[in-house]
Design a protein around this nucleic acid. Structure first.
Lengths: 247, 247
DNA sequence: ACTTTTTCTTACCCACGGGTAACATATCGA
DNA sequence: TCGATATGTTACCCGTGGGTAAGAAAAAGT
């Protein structure tokens, strides 16, 4: 067979790999469609009030069809949760790849994390009850949560070491910051008058302004709308915006 | 059993009101016993995984006996929630009664609220899903939540007006603070190495230090509340990582 | 065209748990 | 002692919803 690699534009009709690949892709796309429908319903109504038939109905299929893609309801929940976890993980990876002081990294994390909390999969990270998961999956989830928490603490501790953050207890500081961020997932709603960017910008300032060693930046401008422009001072964070950070 | 009621000194043996009162008291005590057992189980395992038989079993009675005190499972949930709400309400009432700047009031609220989040009924405020309630009760709960949120905002706005708090958006600031506080109800555990007082003290500082207008000079020399005696100028943890056995 | 594999449907099972009915037993007032 | 009320028990109902079995209907492969 003529193996046709990643589909050159003029691929002849007889490429055996393409159907295979496209079939796998089609399957994955359907799987994700299930997750998108499920996460929305779970957030809307709560996991226990959502029936699998409901999820299926929204996809114009019937309940047993779902079992072609998932072993059961709790696995769907876990996969939704995982999607959120992956988003956070990739954010962290990216920040770790870049440089900057501990404070700078912390601010990047706060900004990106706040944005994630305004998405379905992001919110599922904090609104789903891990006790609904099979023990095996719950363990995975707990581990992921722990890694995220550890990252907050590491950035803070690092900031204290490099002098960008005033001494404090990293554990409690991380709890406070992560708590404020996680809570976004509970109150944010798309039609709520506050855009994710506004929230992320404001939280980045508010949650870190108290811990910076540098002289306090000038009073937050009273302007109600945050023009996404520059920061008043020359170098508040010293880094350009993380706007494109999250994909 | 024979709990002597606040008996007027020389009450003759035939006072019809006392038995009546004591009977009503006995009933109320049992009702509360149910709530205490229920809230514990709900927090431990999650509302949907707890059966009424389980609750009853813990009280050495059987399921239908519960229906002498409550109309149904969701009402038990609501009453648990209400207990927490009453705690918060009384805290707010007390703060309102006293004086002080907006910042001072806010700090009092943060401190007391943090402490409440470390109690069962307090945690139930943020860990129960209002969608499990009957619509009528859910409306009551939503209203109470709104009042609490409004209080945070009022203190902040008041602080901005009286000059004790630097200008900021009260809405978002309240979200950030309340979020950090509410999250305590999700991670706090009695045997976790952090006492409620420690948490309350630290959060009071951490969540408000950034917004105070007064000159900052840290090391929290003037810890606003709860003189804990021991720790002198330096705050407890400078930079010890993994604050393991902080006690 | 044919078989084979994947995908989806119809029809069903059944454990679970909230809620109720009917009955038993304290408890209280007289 | 005796009825009335409150409190609790045993036995049962039944809607719900996750999960499965068997087979139709599409695709894919040949």
């Amino acid at each position: 067979m003529d193996s046709a690699p990643p589909v050159p534009p003029s691929s002849p009709p007889s490429s055996p790999w393409l159907p295979f690949e496209s079939r796998r892709r089609a399957r994955d796309e359907k799987r994700e469609a299930v997750l998108r429908a499920a996460v929305q319903l779970f957030l809307e109504q709560g996991y226990h009030r959502v029936t699998l038939s409901e999820v299926a109905e929204r996809l114009n299929i019937t309940k047993p069809a779902l079992y072609n893609y998932f072993r059961g309801k709790d696995e769907i929940l876990f996969e939704c949760w995982s999607m959120g976890a992956e988003l956070v993980d990739s954010v962290i990876t990216e920040i770790n790849a870049g440089g900057g002081s501990g404070l700078a990294k912390l601010r990047k994390l706060v900004h990106a994390y706040a944005g994630l909390m305004a998405t379905d999969f992001g919110a599922s990270l904090v609104r789903f009850d891990l006790r609904d998961l099979a023990e095996r999956n719950a363990a995975v989830a707990r581990a992921a949560k722990k890694r995220i928490d550890a990252t907050f603490r590491r950035y803070i501790a690092g900031g204290i070491d490099d002098g960008s953050i005033r001494p404090c207890d990293p554990k409690l500081a991380a709890f406070a910051i992560a708590g404020a961020l996680n809570w976004i997932g509970h109150w944010y709603q798309r039609d709520g008058g506050l855009s994710p960017t506004e929230i992320a910008d404001e939280f980045t300032v508010r949650l870190t302004e108290g811990m910076a060693t540098e002289g306090r930046q000038q009073t937050t401008k009273k302007t109600p709308r945050v023009p996404k422009g520059r920061n008043s001072g020359r170098k508040t964070t010293g880094k350009k915006r993380t706007g494109g950070g999250t994909r």
